[in-house]
Design a protein around this nucleic acid. Structure first.
Lengths: 94, 94
DNA sequence: AAAGGATATTGACAACAATCGATATCCCCG
DNA sequence: CGGGGATATCGATTGTTGTCAATATCCTTT
């Protein structure tokens, strides 16, 4: 196992909220998407979106880039791969 | 996507606690392990273990079997595979 | 039937999470 | 430099989580 349990716990926790999973699945690896765009599709207020984006960004499941007044987001495939690997390791007789 | 976001949220939530990840990784797919054994290795009380096992069992990440006075647990590889698949789907340009 | 071991449930509590309205900050454009 | 749009932060509130001690339940063995 490359990382500590506590690190995986944080990653899984970031995905343990329905809204965040939805956000996460709306993002792409290549094509960036701005917060305003996400906000339109989701039934939450702007502060709540900002809160969720912070959580996803902090654990680096997504990448955030400031572009003038806008924030642009995309998925971080490395983190997803890390989770997959963890599940694979645990999934086979560890 | 085979299942709803809310279902994945519950699965990830079950793995969002360090103790539960530890428990999960202590279990095997084939070889069962009893609660008393887990309790010995973990720094928690018996009710707390029971609480965590319930959460893991409810989302079917593990399989629980009553064997006389003992509870025997093993991992459910199907659920792990389901999570892997989700991450794979999301990880590639969905 | 009673004793004792293994697990589950209950009740209480402190810590944390998700949400919102209000407000602050930051950035562009005129 | 001032107005307005985009995002962040703050403060408050409500609901959820993890933990334990105490107790209940269930099972085995005598």
């Amino acid at each position: 196992m490359a990382y500590a349990f506590s690190e995986y716990a944080l990653l899984f926790r970031a995905l343990s909220d329905e809204t965040r999973i939805q956000i996460f699945s709306m993002l792409d690896v290549e094509q960036e998407r701005c917060a305003c765009d996400l906000l339109e599709k989701l039934n939450i207020t702007q502060p709540t979106l900002s809160y969720h984006m912070k959580i996803l960004t902090q654990v680096e499941l997504i990448h955030a880039r400031k572009d003038g007044a806008w924030m642009r987001y995309k998925r971080n495939p490395q983190r997803v791969a890390q989770l997959e690997e963890f599940l694979k390791e645990v999934g086979s007789a560890l």
